[in-house]
Write a protein that binds this DNA or RNA. Structure first.
Lengths: 114, 114
DNA sequence: TTATATACATAAGAAAATTATGCATTCAAT
DNA sequence: ATTGAATGCATAATTTTCTTATGTATATAA
């Protein structure tokens, strides 16, 4: 995994969003999904991902269940009730920020087309 | 100035973009312009702005001229040649990241409408 | 057997922000 | 008269979040 910084805090929102759609996912799966959705352009590093997952769990937004698959450990994450409530707030917040970014960077930008 | 996190490397790009359009601006003016463009939703803190300006100057992307206005000092920033070359790269990079964000956050999103 | 993929985790360090503080002037309000 | 808000710059301490590097372990293809 490597590169791509750019928007602070967006990783949390990305994780929550994917778990809103997918019921449950494990860490490695999240990195692959993001890579797939962005044609390889965003690569989540483990050093960023795992601490972020642990933090979200510590905040009570995620829960985990560990499973054994082919002798390998998988730690599945899913949204808690609190997580389900938070995810939409986070998305709205990030979308709002992106809209404001467009207003600055793209003078001809028109909302509603995001 | 206060609140609004979310800006990580985007602040540099915002600064460069405003200076691409405005020939020259001073720090306080930049904070006001961003506030105006975003209806008060993005407020650049001084603790973020001034170090960012100093860094861009140290990297040779900006130059400064100090002027006295009503007994107050103003430090005007403008793009150097290098700055003019860099600004478009930075914008493309940030727009690309935003597009990828949309692919993750907004499944029905369609590029070309950014 | 060696590299790649899968799968987790943490530690050291850098980068970029927040928060707090400081200095100084102008102008409007009390 | 003085107090607060706005203008205008700056830096220091701290926090957050990232990169980079490292470690452990299994499975599979070359």
């Amino acid at each position: 995994m490597s590169n791509n910084n750019l928007i602070k805090g967006s990783l949390q929102t990305i994780i929550l969003k994917l778990l809103e759609e997918n019921e449950r996912m494990y860490g490695y799966e999240i990195t692959q999904k993001v890579k797939e959705l962005t044609a390889g352009e965003i690569k989540i590093t483990e050093g960023a991902l795992y601490p972020a997952l642990h933090k979200l769990e510590a905040e009570g937004l995620l829960t985990t269940e560990i499973e054994q698959v082919d002798n390998r450990v998988r730690k599945y994450y899913s949204l808690t009730k609190d997580g389900q409530k938070e995810v939409d707030n986070k998305i709205v917040e990030l979308q709002g920020f992106v809209e404001n970014l467009q207003r600055i960077l793209n003078p001809t930008w028109n909302p509603g087309l995001t």
